[in-house]
Write a protein that binds this DNA or RNA. Structure first.
Length: 262
DNA sequence: ATTGTGGCCTGCCCGC
DNA sequence: TGCGGGCAGGCCACAA
């Protein structure tokens, strides 16, 4: 599914290929996909004649400001959304989603002068588009979060560590796979109380988070972690061979090693 | 305020 | 062979 790593790839694609092109048409056939009172007509009127001036990202949200006094287009991708510019995808493979090319799954198309477009293809319709989203509702981005920021995000919380790490209002960008991988690398039990981490554990988690983001970006996505193959029945810990444990934590399927994650 | 739960959505996979 | 149930999880509304 798209997490921070995939959205960053989308951002880069948009930055390289979708900026400074005049918008001549907007197609948004799925009312459900438009959030915050947005309609196809409002969106169209707001974007026609304008150009995207930048491609920013906060966590899993892609932000496309427009020129003049135009609005900012905010895009969420849910778990199956893909970004395409001129038909080229920002990410080749998306786990848990279909990679088939089905035009009926296009929830938004922004067409540019001279041909070509920016499109979001989202089979399960869990993403959405919004104008001028409230950015203050998002916590600091996981890629820029320092050890002190991580401590602040976890401090005093009695929620499970994993739930807190996935809370986009505290830290933005981490989803199910990235969090499981980072906790695996850090040797921490996802069910631990978030506020219970000692200083050494906090630093270990911070390092693991940074390393996980770097490694998985280099390897090609959130699904390429060391724990990937172990996320199945009969799966064993790639580090010590212990049978992996499957639980629901923070409402999400969670795989962890009962031996070295404590 | 904080934490937990259920539901949305639908393609895909497995078992019968 | 076709069918139906379960599964995947980001996000939000709502409850306690």
């Amino acid at each position: 599914m798209p997490e921070l790593i995939e959205i960053e790839a989308y951002r880069r694609l948009a930055e390289e290929a979708a900026l400074d092109r005049e918008i001549v048409d907007v197609v948004a056939p799925d009312a459900w996909w438009l959030k915050g009172g947005l309609t196809a007509e409002i969106l169209r009127d707001a974007l026609l004649g304008r150009r995207f001036t930048a491609a920013r990202r906060i966590g899993k949200r892609l932000l496309l400001p427009t020129d003049g006094d135009g609005p900012l287009l905010g895009l969420r991708f849910g778990m199956t959304g893909r970004l395409l510019v001129d038909g080229a995808a920002g990410v080749d493979q998306l786990q848990y989603s279909s990679n088939r090319d089905v035009a009926a799954w296009d929830r938004l198309a922004v067409r540019f002068a001279g041909g070509g477009d920016l499109r979001v293809r989202d089979p399960r319709r869990l993403g959405g588009a919004e104008l001028d989203p409230d950015e203050a509702r998002l916590g600091p981005d996981a890629t820029t979060l320092g050890p002190a920021g991580l401590r602040r995000a976890l401090h005093g919380s009695r929620a499970p560590l994993k739930a807190r790490l996935m809370d986009q209002a505290r830290i933005s960008g981490l989803g199910n796979l990235l969090v499981d991988e980072a906790l695996f690398q850090a040797g921490l039990d996802p069910a631990r109380e978030a506020g219970s981490l000692a200083d050494t554990e906090l630093r270990r988690l911070h390092r693991a988070m940074r390393r996980t983001l770097g490694d998985l970006t280099a390897r090609g996505g959130s699904h390429t972690g060391e724990t990937g193959p172990a996320r199945r029945p009969e799966g064993v810990c790639p580090r010590d061979g212990t049978p992996m444990v499957r639980r629901t934590i923070g409402g999400r399927t969670t795989w962890s090693c009962p031996r070295h994650q404590r």
